[in-house]
Amino acid sequence: MVPAALLALTGCALLRISLLSDLYLRYVKEGLRPLLIASGAILLLLGLVAAVRLRYRDGEEGAEHGHEGAEHGGEEAERGHTHSAAGPKTAWLLGVPAVMLLLFAPPALGSYTVARDGSGAVAKRTAFAPLPAHSPLALSLTDFTSRAVWDEKGSLKGRTVRLTGFVTPHNDAAWQLSRVVVSCCAADARVLKVEVHGVAAPPADSWVTVTGTWRPDGKAPAVDAAGLERIPEPKNPYRDTARP
């Protein structure tokens, strides 16, 4: 029954995070939700079918062999084959991740991941659309960091911007406003970070919106903050969008 139980557990876990909640957004992008729901339903169905077939087969074997089957089973046990029908007991270890997803879900990637990302890489861009004239200007961290590093025309100079992300401790001089962006799933996560000067850092992993101006004299993208607002964690923490 071990394989059937593992299939059913895994299917239930997938359905819990994709069909019954939005927890799947902590692991994969939005477009994969239908596939997760379909996979969970198929695995649960396979587990139930396997359990029914095993129960039916065991019932038939018991009726046919009677005491002879019981004696044979005793001999098998003496030879050390007690787990042959159900599979190795170590297979239950595969069910641990499924049980964890059923009981509680790990949080999305946050400051721990950012603090251990030493690349500091910013995607290169060669063309930038003109910025709107209104102020403050709501920008995604992707747009802000690209302009701060690669825009030779200095379109951010003198502009008041609004940036949203979570808090990552950095050093005594500044903390980092961060985002983790995924293309497909958490395994291909890319880190975005902006140094924040001028305001004290809230607790790590707090989600905030910072209002300030571009600080062009640093090696990394940075802002001189004039204001900060605590906000709830977005429904999809891996989507780098600007907050009006």
Score class of each variant (00 low, 15 high):
residue 3 P to N: 11
residue 3 P to G: 08
residue 7 L to F: 11
residue 9 L to S: 02
residue 11 G to R: 04
residue 12 C to E: 04
residue 16 R to Y: 06
residue 16 R to H: 09
residue 17 I to P: 00
residue 19 L to I: 04
residue 20 L to R: 05
residue 21 S to H: 00
residue 28 V to H: 07
residue 28 V to C: 00
residue 29 K to S: 08
residue 41 A to F: 12
residue 44 L to G: 04
residue 44 L to V: 12
residue 46 L to I: 11
residue 46 L to V: 04
residue 48 L to E: 10
residue 60 E to I: 02
residue 60 E to G: 01
residue 63 A to G: 05
residue 64 E to V: 13
residue 69 G to L: 03
residue 71 E to R: 04
residue 74 G to P: 07
residue 75 E to T: 07
residue 75 E to C: 07
residue 77 A to V: 06
residue 78 E to H: 15
residue 81 H to I: 03
residue 82 T to G: 15
residue 82 T to V: 15
residue 86 A to S: 13
residue 91 A to H: 08
residue 92 W to E: 01
residue 95 G to V: 01
residue 101 L to Q: 11
residue 105 A to N: 01
residue 109 L to P: 00
residue 114 V to S: 02
residue 125 R to D: 05
residue 125 R to C: 01
residue 129 A to S: 09
residue 135 S to I: 05
residue 139 L to V: 05
residue 143 D to V: 15
residue 145 T to S: 15
residue 145 T to Q: 13
residue 148 A to P: 09
residue 156 L to I: 13
residue 176 Q to Y: 02
residue 178 S to F: 10
residue 178 S to V: 07
residue 191 V to G: 07
residue 195 E to A: 15
residue 199 V to I: 10
residue 203 P to H: 11
residue 205 D to M: 10
residue 207 W to C: 10
residue 211 T to I: 08
residue 212 G to I: 08
residue 213 T to K: 04
residue 214 W to F: 14
residue 231 I to F: 00
residue 238 Y to R: 02
residue 239 R to K: 10
residue 239 R to T: 04
residue 243 R to W: 09
